[in-house]
């Protein structure tokens, strides 16, 4: 039985550089060692996950943080493709978006998102949410180990 990785690989799909940076800052304070890679649109996200082009050497992420409203290919499509791709469907996807719309929440779970989080407006709460994601997904949850 392979040991769980000591460094957790996280892919953040986020088009706002400020939000990406803020999330990086939040993860910096974390207790679990992690590598946070950031891509800014849906096409890049799929290329990263499928290790295409410049992402040929990208690691397989243990967790994906996915924004919904993205340029080129939006988060809903990324989610759909991931969850219908046998090679990617076991990767937990956390939807992290500003949208409070019930329709978005419902659609996300219909496409088998693992959870849906609305980004808090307030910094303190945002940091708390990222800390909660880290605690839950990186320490509480047992993630699948895929032999490669």
């Amino acid at each position: 039985m392979p040991l769980p990785p000591d460094v957790v690989e996280i892919l953040l799909v986020e088009d706002s550089p400020a939000d990406a940076r803020l999330t990086q800052e939040a993860f910096k304070d974390g207790k679990v060692r992690n590598n946070l890679a950031v891509v800014s649109d849906g096409l890049q996200a799929m290329a990263y996950l499928r290790r295409e082009g410049r992402f040929a050497d990208a690691p397989r992420p243990d967790l994906v943080l996915l924004d919904l409203n993205l340029p080129k290919m939006d988060g809903r499509e990324v989610l759909k493709q991931m969850k219908t791709d046998p090679g990617l469907m076991t990767i937990p996807v956390v939807i992290l978006t500003t949208s409070p719309a019930d329709a978005d929440v419902l659609a996300a779970y219909e496409y088998h998102a693992n959870c849906y989080i609305q980004k808090p407006v307030d910094l303190t709460r945002f940091l708390a949410v990222i800390a909660a994601i880290e605690t839950f997904w990186l320490t509480v949850v047992k993630l699948p180990v895929v032999a490669e």
């Binding site: 706002s16 400020a18 939000d19 803020l22 800052e25 500003t98 407006v121 307030d122 910094l123 303190t124 945002f126």
Partner: peptide
């Protein structure tokens, strides 16, 4: 307006 303001607020708070 909320979006850019959130950035301003978040980074000044940070």
């Amino acid at each position: 307006l909320q979006e850019p303001l959130r950035t301003v607020a978040s980074f000044t708070q940070l």
